[in-house]
């Protein structure tokens, strides 16, 4: 192995460790309370994770939170981008999730159709 190869391994492997670094630019928080899960939050989360992975986004973490008291809007997803207001999406589905990844996370434009709240 040469030094360049070592550095390539590091590139690849450090993505694997990105979760532990705590320096993600974007945080996707999925409401995973009982009503969220009942409304399909698991599928939404799976879609987020898959799309993020496919697009090789390394500065995004996906985390979950509990009941938010917005049962009618579940599944609810918050997108927090450093330096920008928090955007909350409601009644999410797997397809909507993939759109949010492409339009909001990659291109930086909130998908206004599903936005239920913008704060901060």
């Amino acid at each position: 192995m040469k030094l360049e190869e070592l550095r390539q391994i590091r590139e690849r492997a450090s993505k694997e460790l990105s979760l532990r670094k705590g320096n993600a630019r974007i945080k996707v928080v999925i409401g995973m309370g009982t009503s969220g899960i009942a409304a399909g939050a698991r599928d939404v989360m799976a879609a987020f994770l898959d799309e993020i992975s496919v697009r090789n986004l390394t500065d995004v973490v996906v985390t979950q939170t509990g009941e938010r008291g917005l049962a009618s809007s579940e599944p609810v997803v918050d997108v927090l981008i450093t330096g920008e207001p928090k955007v909350s999406y409601g009644q999410m589905t797997a397809d909507k999730a993939r759109r949010v990844v492409v339009e909001h996370l990659v291109n930086g434009n909130a998908v206004t159709d599903f936005v239920i709240e913008v704060r901060g």
């Binding site: 030094l3 070592l6 550095r7 391994i9 590091r10 492997a13 450090s14 694997e16 460790l17 532990r20």
Partner: peptide, 25 residues
């Protein structure tokens, strides 16, 4: 407590063996 000690790639991911590489080259 932050990496898997039995996985060399995790060590490399934290900058492991970079110092050796630089020292040697």
């Amino acid at each position: 407590g932050e990496i898997d000690p039995e996985n060399i790639e995790e060590f490399i991911a934290t900058g492991g063996y970079e110092a050796l590489g630089r020292a040697l080259t």
